[in-house]
Computed example of a mutant assay.
Amino acid sequence: MGKWGSSMLIKLSLMLSLSVVALANNGDFHLFYFVQQWLGSYCDQHGERCCFPDSGKPAAEFSIYGLWPYYNDGSFPYNCGGGNFNEALLKPMQDNLRKEWPSFTCPQIGRKFWVHEWNKHGTCSKSVLGEVAYFKAALALKNRVNILQALTRAGIRPNNQMYPLKAVKKAIARATGFHPWVVCNSNSQGVSQIWQVSMCVDRTGTRLINCPFVPKGQGDCGSQIKFPSY
């Protein structure tokens, strides 16, 4: 095959790959993963630092990390476009978002984090939930799924102690009626610690459901995990 033929083959392969991605991103999603994170673990992980808002360090609590649509094979669409972020629409719920959906990633605080989440994930569910409905759904789920309360009732507290992963999952399942997916990160000493807790939600963004699959690319936990203070 000549140089021109090889070049054309490469271009055709690239076009085909992009077409497959486009079709995947335009497909119908199956469910949502509602993800909360423990900010103590985020701020304590190796190589990260936290930037707190001007109002100061928030109270210790799990906060919203995302509401992510998934396909039925465990993959997920992203950056689907066609849904320009309008900050004015969120003004009535802005105080609640600052409390329940903060970002301590420097310098991605507040609005920048919401823009990112809407553009990357929300736009892929806009056929079901528009911008306002998307953020309202996340806030309503946060109100229903109180991870810290569930763990505290089971005697699992953010006190820098190690707890069995099974006990953490059992406590959350007992409180919510559904099994969670727990994601861990590592602190600067390499210790596995609870970071994210995900629950599956139906396509309307309102009803918790059993998770039919494990999301791809999620971090593993040790059998014993640390619950760091914050």
Rank of each mutant, 00 (worst) to 15 (best):
F76G: 01
F104N: 03
V21L: 08
S125K: 00
G74Q: 06
P164A: 11
Q36W: 03
G27L: 08
M162F: 07
A59T: 13
D28R: 07
P215A: 01
K216A: 12
G74Y: 06
Q36L: 02
S17G: 06
R49P: 00
G2H: 11
I172Q: 03
V21P: 02
G5Q: 15
R174S: 15
A138G: 11
S41R: 00
G130N: 15
W114E: 09
R174N: 15
C211V: 07
P102V: 05
V214F: 09
W118Y: 08
G122L: 06
N119G: 04
G219R: 14
L31T: 08
Y71F: 12
N96P: 00
N210K: 12
V21W: 00
L14F: 11
Q218S: 14
L90E: 05
E100T: 11
W38E: 00
K166H: 01
Y42V: 01
E61C: 08
R207W: 03
N210Y: 07
Y70Q: 13
G205T: 06
T105V: 12
A88F: 03
L90F: 11
G27Y: 01
Y42C: 02
N146R: 15
G27R: 10
K136Q: 14
I156H: 05
G155S: 05
A173G: 03
Y78C: 06
V20E: 06
C43A: 14
E100P: 00
L39C: 02
K3C: 14
S229A: 14
Y71W: 02
A171I: 01
T204M: 10
D220T: 15
F227L: 12
Y134T: 04
L151M: 07
P180I: 05
C43W: 00
T152V: 10
S188L: 10
A138W: 03
L151Y: 04
M162S: 13
H179M: 07
E48W: 04
H179K: 15
P92N: 12
K169F: 02
A24G: 10
S7Q: 14
D220Q: 13
C51F: 01
N159Q: 13
Y70D: 06
S127Y: 09
G177I: 07
Y70K: 02
L16T: 11
V115D: 06
E87A: 13
N26Y: 03
A150W: 02
H116S: 12
G82I: 01
T123M: 12
E117V: 01
Y70A: 05
Y65S: 03
C80P: 06
E100S: 15
K126E: 09
M199V: 05
S7M: 14
I109R: 11
P215D: 00
G217V: 04
K11L: 15
A59F: 02
M162Q: 15
D95I: 14
H30F: 12
P69S: 07
D44L: 00
F178I: 05
G40C: 06
K226F: 00
K99M: 02
T176S: 15
N86D: 14
A154K: 02
P164M: 11
S6A: 14
E48P: 01
D202K: 04
R157A: 08
L90R: 10
F178L: 01
G66D: 10
